Simulated scan of single mutants.
Amino acid sequence: MAKTGKPTTEAQVLKYFQQLDHPLAEVAEALRKVILAADPTIGEHIKWNSPAFYYTGPMKAFDPKEYKRDLVVFNLHKKDAVLLVFPTGAKVNDPSGILEGTFPDGRKTAKFTHMDEVKKQEKDLQTVVKAWLALVEK
């Protein structure tokens, strides 16, 4: 707990996963670990009612609506897949093709339906995360 009596962001995320009632909860938890292991500057919190990951280091000033600090957000609305939404994913060079979609707002997604996909694409996901971090305006 933080000094304010509110749970820390990590505690909020852990509570979210403890209470997660989703057929692919194990997949979501594995993806969380992969993302956090990619770089020590990645933090996590609950944003848009879902686990989300962001860059924790110093940055140049920017409009918060540009989502420059936001790396990826879980979308767990479908029961047959875990969707990772990268709000600014279109800016990332992704030779692996793990990022999909052509959204006008510049987001990209990565879809996982079972643990084998997580294991098979772990390195590609971490490469995308690192490529995104390299674009952060520090």
Rank of each mutant, 00 (worst) to 15 (best):
M1L: 10
A2V: 00
K3M: 04
G5F: 00
K6Y: 04
T8R: 04
E10R: 15
E10I: 08
Q12V: 03
Q12L: 11
Q12R: 13
V13D: 02
V13I: 08
L14K: 09
L14G: 01
L14Y: 01
K15W: 10
K15H: 10
Y16N: 04
Q19P: 00
Q19D: 08
L20T: 06
L20H: 09
D21Q: 15
H22L: 09
H22R: 12
H22D: 05
P23A: 08
P23D: 09
L24T: 01
A25S: 14
E26S: 15
A28E: 02
R32N: 04
K33Q: 12
K33N: 15
I35V: 14
L36I: 04
A38Y: 06
A38G: 05
D39M: 04
P40S: 13
H45N: 14
W48M: 10
W48L: 15
A52W: 00
A52D: 00
F53W: 05
F53A: 02
Y54C: 02
Y55P: 06
G57H: 07
G57L: 08
M59E: 07
M59S: 08
K60H: 14
K60W: 03
K60M: 01
A61K: 13
F62C: 08
D63R: 11
P64V: 13
P64Q: 13
K65T: 12
K65A: 09
K65Q: 12
Y67T: 07
R69C: 09
D70A: 09
D70H: 06
V72Y: 02
N75L: 04
N75D: 14
L76I: 06
L76P: 00
L76S: 07
L76H: 03
K78L: 15
K79H: 13
K79G: 07
D80I: 08
D80N: 13
D80Q: 07
V82F: 13
V82S: 05
L83Q: 13
L84A: 06
L84H: 11
F86L: 04
T88V: 09
G89M: 00
G89L: 00
A90Q: 09
A90N: 14
K91P: 11
V92Q: 10
N93L: 11
N93G: 07
D94H: 11
P95V: 03
P95K: 10
P95L: 10
P95R: 14
S96A: 03
G97T: 15
L99Q: 02
G101N: 12
G101Q: 14
P104M: 06
P104H: 10
G106C: 04
R107V: 01
K108T: 03
T109E: 13
A110H: 06
K111G: 12
F112E: 03
M115K: 06
M115S: 12
M115F: 08
D116Y: 09
K119Q: 15
E122Y: 10
E122P: 06
K123L: 11
V129Q: 01
V129G: 00
K130H: 12
L133Q: 02
L135C: 05
K138I: 05
